[in-house]
């Protein structure tokens, strides 16, 4: 049931999607084909899929640890933005620094940026008992505005005809493409898969991973075992922040090659769906990341081939999360239909 339930959820989401398409006046099956099959039938668009999947897998795997330990970090989007910005400090402000060490340095700075920003809700939660759901989300709005100000203001490309964007990164500051002849997918995808596998090892094979699960499943038992809950808040948030920061700089140094006023079409929020569709398992997040990347890609394709709105992608993502959560019930409970007993008034 553990593996079957997300698949059932996905299938139900597809059925709901087909109904939605017929409401929009499109042939449902043809629309689903154009949405989910056509985009991956060509090599270059498979590359696009991998580009979109990389940040989703990275953040989804990080959020698995957060959610398993009951730390509701929903601010991955903001942490991704901060990672992208911190990682861009070198190529934007010090373009004269060149060499093979620049790219690794950028990636590390991106990780640090994401961790630092994720540290804020963790600090507030441990120090002041502030609800992390609300603070981490508010920080997303703040991060978006900080990015907007920076790119329009101090970091704007002086030779860029006043467009709100930074200078283009030099080749040594870009993530190289995997197979340039086929498409533009870069090594971000490889990084994402490796990181997800590492997090899986951490969760499945180490003491820390065991602590994560115990603290999440039973805070009381964890207390008796002597596991430090405050420590875990920081661990989970900083790990998720690190993956989000890495996702940010991978996106900036990979697909876009410069900072713009937005760096993500909501990958940080979609990553929440990735984590749940992957059943909070980092390896599951790899598969789920590919599936949700397909919803983004299919949305773009359907916009062109079917003339439906690009908003369809968001609807699909919401439907997937909804049905996956509904199907979780199948794992946790056995459903019995019981006729309700009617107790006459005054009988008690």
């Amino acid at each position: 049931m553990t593996y079957l339930s997300p698949i059932i959820g996905l299938a139900l989401a597809l059925i709901a999607g087909a109904i939605m398409f017929s409401f929009l006046g499109k042939p449902p099956l043809g629309a689903l084909y154009a949405y989910f099959i056509e985009p991956v039938s060509e090599m270059w668009s498979v590359h696009e899929l991998l580009i979109k999947a990389a940040p989703l897998i990275l953040m989804g795997a990080g959020l698995c640890v957060c959610y398993q330990s009951n730390n509701w970090n929903i601010g991955a989007e903001g942490q991704m933005i901060m990672g992208g910005m911190a990682g861009s400090i070198l190529p934007v402000l010090f373009p004269q620094i060149a060499g093979p060490f620049v790219l690794p340095a950028m990636l590390i700075m991106g990780v640090i940026g994401g961790m630092a920003y994720a540290g804020i809700p963790a600090l507030l939660k441990t120090k002041f008992k502030t609800n992390e759901i609300l603070t981490s989300l508010m920080l997303v709005y703040i991060a978006q505005l900080i990015l907007d100000w920076t790119v329009r203001g101090p970091w704007r490309n002086p030779h860029g005809l006043n467009f709100p964007e930074t200078r283009q990164f030099d080749a040594f500051a870009r993530l190289p493409e995997m197979i340039p002849a086929d498409g533009r997918a870069n090594f971000g995808f490889v990084i994402a898969v490796v990181v997800a596998l590492l997090i899986w090892v951490l969760m499945a094979k180490t003491m820390k991973g065991f602590q994560v699960k115990v603290i999440g499943a039973s805070p009381r038992a964890a207390k008796f075992a002597g596991f430090d809950a405050k420590n875990m808040v920081f661990f989970a948030f900083l790990l998720a922040g690190a993956t989000a920061g890495l996702a940010g700089i991978v996106e900036v140094a990979g697909a876009s090659g410069q900072l713009r006023t937005t760096i993500s079409p909501g990958y940080g929020f979609t990553a929440i769906i990735v984590a749940f569709l992957g059943r909070l398992n980092p390896i599951g997040a790899i598969v789920a990341g590919l599936v949700l990347a397909l919803t983004f890609l299919g949305g773009e394709a359907a916009q062109i081939s079917l003339g439906v709105s690009d908003k369809v992608a968001r609807v699909f993502q919401g439907l997937i999360l909804f049905f996956v959560l509904a199907c979780d019930t199948l794992i946790l409970y056995r459903i019995r239909f019981v006729a309700s007993k009617i107790i006459p008034k005054g009988a008690a």
């Binding site: 959610y67 509701w72 929903i74 759901i133 929020f269 929440i272 769906i273 749940f276 709105s309 908003k311 369809v312 992608a313 968001r314 609807v315 699909f316 993502q317 919401g318 439907l319 999360l321 909804f322 959560l325 509904a326 979780d328 019930t329």
Partner: peptide, 20 residues
């Protein structure tokens, strides 16, 4: 179902559906 996750799902779905 988990209330936190379902609430998030509702927000994501609402934002998408309203756009459509």
């Amino acid at each position: 179902a988990n209330q936190v996750a379902t609430g998030l799902a509702l927000t994501i779905l609402g934002l998408g559906l309203s756009g459509l």
